[in-house]
Design a protein around this nucleic acid. Structure first.
Lengths: 92, 92
DNA sequence: GGAATATTTAGACAATTTTCTAAATGTACT
DNA sequence: AGTACATTTAGAAAATTGTCTAAATATTCC
């Protein structure tokens, strides 16, 4: 997916908190879930939004599923913001 | 308003297009509106979301209202993204 | 003051999103 | 095979959002 999916994914505070949480390293769905006051099903939904946006990767490890950051897609975002800030070389 | 308002404002493609449009300089609500295939009322709504997020400023000039970029609030966004990318000095 | 133009506000409606509960899937252990 | 645990999927309810039409506000010009 794309640009728009990435922005949408980042627009929710729970999803940003999940990304912040994963800064310290990969975590299982359960560990992530227990950081929030919502059901595991809801957290699982947020994880799938982040995954579809390409912001995280998942990997099954036995009984658990581990999630980790994949921040390469953020380059598009930072590039767009930089462009807005006048980094464009040939402006009118 | 804050961080969350800024992210929310940026999550809509029309609103990002408005910001892109304003890169070339201030424009009236009417000029902005005629760039999109939606009613002026709808564009006005998007402008108010952007204004409440602090991303644009408005100034009346006679019969018109001019909008211009105010990108200082984007620093919070880029700062957060940079933090995610491991710019944090004391990570575990 | 009254008409014309520019824009916003109010209220309604449809689409999307967030959240839940309940059921399904996948894995490990005995 | 059966039970327990970890997680997701399905489906529904509630909240939010994007859009429209119609009415309101603000400004200019005659």
């Amino acid at each position: 997916m794309s640009f728009q999916a990435t922005f949408k994914a980042l627009s929710d505070p729970t999803r940003r908190a999940i990304l912040d949480l994963l800064k310290d390293g990969a975590k299982t769905a359960g560990e992530i879930g227990s950081s929030f006051e919502m059901t595991g099903a809801t957290v699982s939904h947020h994880l799938s939004v982040l995954r579809e946006a390409g912001l995280i990767n998942d990997e099954r490890r036995g009984k658990f599923i581990c999630y980790e950051l994949n921040l390469s897609v953020l380059d598009e975002i930072t590039g767009w913001v930089a462009g807005l800030k006048g980094a464009d070389p040939h402006e009118k």
